[in-house]
Nucleic acid binder design. Structure first.
Lengths: 183, 183
DNA sequence: ACTTTACCTATCCAAATTGACATATCCATT
DNA sequence: AATGGATATGTCAATTTGGATAGGTAAAGT
């Protein structure tokens, strides 16, 4: 039930076709928040049109059809965003991996943690570069889509990095207290 | 396809019944990483037994049946954890909300951001308390389940908190540059 | 002794989701 | 003019999922 709001949100930034929307889900949005392929997008767009939350806006080349949010759609999205949801659906494989890390023996866990630390470091560098410079301005007094999200991503990666290094330290502590069996 | 690994992971900590496992998913594991109800757990346990990844361990009162991981299951879990997966399934409603925040006008966005800041502050206090004290030790040289995860959660909330306050600042900046229309 | 509560496993069905398949157009290169 | 790649929309069967429902046992309270 969250896909529809993702679509409404994307369309509220600017009108787009199903294809455009599918592209959007391949970026950070799809990697960190919610993913959907075109096979789910097209049917959902049809439903949204039925319900009057979006409307057919334009026709382009190759059968391209762009959609735009209606006033009703904007209201629906706003209501959803302003209603604090307790316990929305969470299904996050990367985080599940972290939860299960204790199932590995310390050596293996260390390897995974080092990978996480390296990876997050890389992402931090990338995002930091992308966010360098001044706050971008939008003519309508809003921050551009993605700017806030990028800031969030950056902080998440920093947190992951910190955590991985801390966890490595914790493993070391435990190792010192109860050294490996071959001793 | 990740549920099975969650189950293998939980069972590798200690043998448990389907009921126990369902309970485990109601805690932090289910809130932040992956959720499953008993209606999915029982069939999956049956499949895992079929495939020889877990085995029937014990029979208790009230028809209680506990399962334990087999050597094959342990290997399967280890392989999964050590194989860095690019783009595992992510479906995270709370984060989606953050991505869509730019769709709100600044006033509404501020309200949401303040809620996030308040909420994360509360969570930080809770988790910080839970983690106070020394690193817990396990007899087998492993960190107990949940300790690493709790550390991760704490850092995530701190990142959320930072982010929300930063985002509020960004909104202020934009507001100063292009003041509200009623001016 | 009786009742309530927690424990414990199980299945059914509608809805959601995925992966694979299908089709067609436009554009750039050769 | 032919080829190939990116654009673009759709469908369908098989699986996964979630909500509801069902039925039973042990322990604890009264």
């Amino acid at each position: 039930m969250a896909l529809r709001y993702a679509l409404l949100g994307l369309l509220s930034e600017r009108p787009a076709s199903g294809y455009d929307l599918a592209k959007a889900f391949e970026g950070e949005l799809g990697s960190y928040a919610w993913h959907a392929g075109h096979n789910r997008i097209y049917p959902e767009l049809a439903r949204l049109v039925d319900e009057g939350l979006i409307e057919h806006a334009d026709e382009g080349a190759r059968g391209r059809r762009t959609y735009a949010v209606t006033e009703a759609g904007r209201t629906e999205l706003r209501n959803w965003l302003l209603t604090p949801r307790t316990g929305g659906a969470v299904r996050n494989e990367p985080v599940l991996r972290l939860f299960l890390l204790s199932a590995l023996d310390p050596e293996d866990a260390r390897k995974v943690l080092r990978d996480i630390a390296d990876d997050s470091e890389r992402q931090i560098a990338e995002l930091g570069e992308a966010m360098a410079g001044d706050t971008p301005v939008s003519p309508d007094g809003r921050l551009p889509f993605g700017w806030l999200a990028a800031g969030y991503g950056l902080r998440q990666y920093e947190a992951s990095h910190d955590w991985a290094r801390w966890a490595l330290g914790e493993l070391d502590k435990v190792a010192r207290r109860s050294p490996p069996s071959h001793s």
